[in-house]
Design a protein around this nucleic acid. Structure first.
Lengths: 112, 112
DNA sequence: TATTCTTATCGTATATTTACGATGAACGAT
DNA sequence: ATCGTTCATCGTAAATATACGATAAGAATA
């Protein structure tokens, strides 16, 4: 039972540069096939309602809602309230920023 | 205590398309700032040895080794044994594939 | 052969993620 | 005012992730 070790699992993440942390956070939001699928649904098919997405995934409504929340957390999507429904759509600004940062990460050459 | 619910947390991931699952898996490998940092170190500075990476991160050797293993798991990096050392470098093929798949995901427009 | 250096793996503790059903809140319609 | 629809949140259980120190395994060196 190390007193310091207990908090480290989270605290260590704060010791990295903010850009690395941001990109890692976006990657985390994309780290589940359901959320990849949701993002593709929102862009490809222009379906917005939460209920529509639920029908397209093999997951319960509450689970889909959780996944939507995670995508919303990092700003990849947004949800606009429309009466009792919620219309979801992707946030192009964040999408472009993510694309730019991932490109910077991937456009390198190994000379090792 | 639902008997089915117990296994679902993992099993559900298998019900998605393999491309979505692959991309989610790569995103998972990138979902920690330490691993973003490691990838940048391997590309930017052309430092290969595990020990060098350990010195550049606020993490223990065993933790860095675990992060390297995760990046290796999805093929983003590879480790070539060089005597007692291990020379790590990025795998350009996987990097390019990842870039392509992320681009497909991000190059969309919201018309919602 | 013994020692040192380098890295991976084991064991462990805690935090987080993923999934579900149940419930609650907000709105529109009857 | 009540009811149905839609979605978020709560509570919970199991799996996974993150971190560490300790230890093992392999190669080079003394």
């Amino acid at each position: 039972m190390n007193d310091l070790g207990n908090i480290m699992a989270v605290a260590k993440k704060e010791e990295f540069k903010s850009k690395d942390t941001w990109l890692a956070d976006v990657a985390k939001a994309l780290s589940h096939p359901a959320r990849i699928r949701i993002l593709k649904i929102l862009t490809d098919m222009n379906v917005c309602m939460c209920g529509d997405i639920v029908e397209l995934l093999p997951l319960s409504q509450s689970t889909v809602s959780q996944h939507l929340k995670e995508l919303k957390r990092v700003g990849l999507i947004q949800g606009d309230i429309d009466g009792p429904k919620v219309c979801y759509c992707v946030n192009n600004k964040t999408l472009q920023k993510a694309k730019k940062e991932f490109d910077k990460l991937f456009n390198k050459v190994c000379v090792c």
